[in-house]
Amino acid sequence: MKKLNLILTIVLAFALWSCEDGESAFEFDNQGTSTSGSIAKFQIDSKYLYVVEENSLSIYDVTDFEQLSQLSKVYVDREVETLFRLGDILYLGTTSGVLFYDITNVNQPSYVSSYDHITACDPVVSDGSYAYSTLRSSNTCGGGSDVLDIINLSDISAPSLTASYDVASPYGLVLFDNYLYVGQGLNGMKVFDITDVTAVTEVVSYDEITAIDFIRDGENLIITTRTGLVQAKVGTDGTLSVLSKINY
C-alpha cells in the first residue's frame, strides 16, 4: 500500500503541476496513453490510471484529479512486476509469465490468457502482433537463462512462442519501428532488427551505455542507465546519436 500511495502521489503531483488555469497540459501519444518505460508499474491516459502491485491490478478514474476514484481491482495469483498497455489490452509481466487482460470494460478487467515461462524477471512490450519479453535470471529473479522471447499474438487467447534469443542480463526494452532496443545493465545495450522475428539480427551494441530501461520520445530515446539519463536520436538504420547526458 505504501508503494501505491507513493505512485499515486507522484502521478497526481505531476498532473496538477501540468495544469494551467484549470486546463490540463498533460500530453498523450496517439493511443491516448502517457509514455512510460517497460519496467513501469503504472500506465496513465486522459481518463484512467492503471496500477499493478505485487498481486493485483487496479484501475482508477483520474478525469478529476481532486476526486480520484477506484473503478476496479483484480487480484492476480502471480507476482506482478511490470505493466504495458496497447489499446484495450494490458500486458502484465510476472515472475512466471506474461498475462493478458482485456480492459474494454474498465470496471471489469477480464483475464484473456497467459504465456508461461521459467521463473525470471520479465518486462514486456508489444506491437499488437507480437509481444517481446526479456527474461533475466539473477539472485532476485530466480534461475534459468537470460533470453529474449518473441510471443505470437495472432490468437491472443492462445499465445505461442515464435523464437527465443540469448541476451546477456536483459532488463528493459522498447520498440522503435523495425528495431528493438534491449538494456543489459553492466553489459550495455543492444539494438536488434526485428523485421523478420524468426531471424532477428543484432544491428549494433553500445557497451558504454549501461541501459536499464527506455522511453520513446518522438524520434528520440530517453535511456535510464545505472549512472543517469541519456537522450539519443535514433537514425533510420537503428543506430543512436547521443544528444545529452545527465549523471547522478
Rank of each mutant, 00 (worst) to 15 (best):
Lys3Pro: 10
Leu4Gly: 08
Asn5Val: 12
Leu6Asp: 15
Leu6Thr: 13
Ile7Trp: 04
Ile7Gly: 05
Val11Leu: 10
Val11Ser: 06
Ala13Leu: 10
Ala13Asp: 14
Phe14Cys: 12
Phe14Ala: 13
Leu16His: 14
Asp21Phe: 10
Gly22Arg: 03
Gly22Asn: 03
Ser24Lys: 06
Ala25Ser: 14
Phe26Met: 11
Asp29Trp: 00
Thr35Ala: 15
Ser36Val: 14
Ile39Asn: 08
Lys41Gln: 14
Ser46Val: 10
Leu49Ile: 01
Glu54Ile: 12
Glu54Arg: 10
Asn55Glu: 11
Leu57His: 04
Thr63Tyr: 07
Asp64Lys: 07
Asp64Pro: 02
Phe65Glu: 11
Gln67Ser: 08
Leu68Arg: 04
Ser69His: 10
Arg78Ala: 15
Arg78Leu: 15
Glu81His: 03
Glu81Phe: 09
Thr82Leu: 02
Ile89Met: 07
Leu90Pro: 02
Leu92Pro: 00
Thr95Phe: 14
Thr95Arg: 15
Val98Asp: 01
Leu99Trp: 04
Tyr101Gln: 06
Tyr101Glu: 01
Asp102His: 00
Tyr111Pro: 00
Tyr111Gly: 01
Val112Trp: 06
Ser113Gly: 05
Ser114Thr: 07
Ser114Ile: 08
Asp116Cys: 11
His117Asp: 10
His117Thr: 10
Cys121Pro: 05
Asp122Arg: 13
Ser126Met: 02
Gly128Ser: 01
Tyr132Lys: 02
Ser133Cys: 09
Ser133Gly: 09
Ser137Pro: 12
Asn139Arg: 13
Asn139Met: 13
Thr140Cys: 13
Cys141Arg: 00
Gly142Trp: 07
Gly142Met: 06
Gly142Ala: 05
Gly143Ile: 07
Gly143Ser: 08
Gly143Pro: 04
Gly144Ser: 08
Ser145Asp: 15
Ser145Leu: 15
Leu153His: 02
Ser154Asn: 08
Ile156Val: 08
Leu161His: 08
Thr162Met: 15
Ala163Cys: 10
Asp166Ala: 14
Val167Thr: 05
Ala168Ile: 14
Ser169Thr: 12
Pro170Phe: 03
Tyr171His: 12
Leu175Ser: 07
Phe176Gln: 02
Phe176Glu: 05
Asp177Pro: 06
Asp177Trp: 10
Asp177Arg: 10
Asn178Glu: 13
Tyr181Ser: 01
Gln184Leu: 03
Asn187Asp: 12
Asn187Ile: 09
Gly188Ser: 04
Met189Cys: 05
Val191Trp: 01
Val191Leu: 09
Ile194Cys: 03
Ile194Ser: 00
Ile194Tyr: 06
Thr195Asn: 11
Asp196Asn: 11
Val197Arg: 07
Ala199His: 13
Val200Ile: 09
Thr201Leu: 09
Val203Asp: 01
Val204Asn: 13
Ser205Trp: 09
Ser205Glu: 11
Ser205Ile: 08
Tyr206Gln: 06
Asp207Pro: 13
Thr210Gly: 08
Asp217Arg: 13
Asp217Gln: 14
Glu219Ile: 15
Asn220Ser: 08
Asn220Met: 05
Ile222Gly: 08
Ile223Gln: 02
Thr224Lys: 13
Thr225Gly: 04
Arg226Asn: 15
Leu229Ser: 05
Gln231Val: 15
Lys233Glu: 14
Val234Lys: 00
Gly235Tyr: 07
Thr236Gly: 11
Asp237Gly: 00
Asp237Trp: 05
Asp237Tyr: 00
Leu240Phe: 01
Leu240Ile: 03
Ser241Cys: 11
Val242Phe: 02
Val242Ala: 11
Lys245Trp: 01
Asn247Leu: 14
Tyr248Ser: 11
